[in-house]
Design a protein around this nucleic acid. Sequence first.
DNA 1: AAAAGCTTTTAACATGTTTTTAGAATTCGT
DNA 2: ACGAATTCTAAAAACATGTTAAAAGCTTTT
Lengths: 224, 224
Amino acid sequence: MESILIIDDEADIRDILGYNLKKEGFQVLTATNGIEGIKIAERENPDLILLDVMMPDMDGIEVCQLLRSKSSTAHIKVCFLTARNEDYSQIAGFDAGADDYVSKPIKPKVLVSRIRAILRRSSDEQTVNSSLSDALTIDRDKYVVTKKGESIHLPKKEFELLALLASEPEKVFDRDFILETVWGTGIIVGDRTIDVHVRRLREKIGPEYIKTIKGVGYKFIDLQ
Amino acid sequence: MESILIIDDEADIRDILGYNLKKEGFQVLTATNGIEGIKIAERENPDLILLDVMMPDMDGIEVCQLLRSKSSTAHIKVCFLTARNEDYSQIAGFDAGADDYVSKPIKPKVLVSRIRAILRRSSDEQTVNSSLSDALTIDRDKYVVTKKGESIHLPKKEFELLALLASEPEKVFDRDFILETVWGTGIIVGDRTIDVHVRRLREKIGPEYIKTIKGVGYKFIDLQ
DNA sequence: AAAAGCTTTTAACATGTTTTTAGAATTCGT
DNA sequence: ACGAATTCTAAAAACATGTTAAAAGCTTTT
């Protein structure tokens, strides 16, 4: 589950945002000021921090700069909460390393969709990196496989199979696991079904990417 | 001309507000309760709804949530009318997706300036979102699609479908998601309903914009 | 209140693609 | 070289989508 840390001095805001984010399935952490927020961020390593710009003692900009300067928190996504016409803070915020900002009054639905967008952005990048060899890219969202810039059309099962194998290059996936994941538990298909799919995948993306481990299963080779 | 829907059970309020808004050049629609209001909103697609929080049967919060949950009304701006010390309603109101609120007793001049502010804000936002590809523009506010300067009339469902797909070009939307978003959760329609809508969309905007991913769903292609 | 016009949904059928199967050929490890 | 596992091939079966026309729902007009 994705976790979100809210840093805001106003209890009302913390409550409303917390309520809405929990409802959407996020794990919620809260802090009432910058110092506390940084401590929690270090300890809990949340996926994203919602950070109020205007706070007494230490403002959001400062907090963000501190987060960015520590290696244990530098990677955490930060989204600023700003009052409507604090235009300057948007600029200063991005400057300080924010990923996005949302203006008050905050509409929960807007906020949630922005949060999802930020998190998706980062997970996309990872997907691309992890399932990417120099020549091959796999984009689950767009359902597209690219080889040396040329996009290759793959039908659903072949795509799912490739995406699974490529999700952990070098790891051997055994036939039962592949069947469960790509076909679904309980679905019974003949012995040769996987083979045929692998064959056609090799035909389309090139045979060098998928290696057979006889008696066990298949693995994706990340060609450097 | 910008249109405003007033939903309030008290005839006095409807009359006073209606009179003032007409004088300011708005087109005014009225409804005496939530159900009627939602119907009118769907049919007339007003630019903004003034929504009384305290009403018998269905209160404003509920009405607003319903409006937000339907794709055909989700984009309409909502401004709550609240009694002076209903503080909680401000919180619950934003929670339900309101854009602003005005406390009674309402001073017409204040209300008009608030309304102008909301509409101005929204038209700014929409401009950014509306031009999605060079050839095709989609304006949620006006419910208009333009292709190379020529405006194309699309019925509601087709428009919503296009707007959804175009909201993230290249991304594949699966059939379940499309059904949930455009038709609504729990609404059951036949298997071929989406296809037929896609077909007619392609007929009107050109077949090259919407691509089928067999077994998965559809995606919008952003032609450069 | 009926008629005319749209929009939306349904249903039946056509089409083309994907998935599965099965047998023969081949490969691989021991 | 032997046997088990995998690949290859082609055809059958299953499936998803496209296409049409008509029916069912709405709104607006008369």
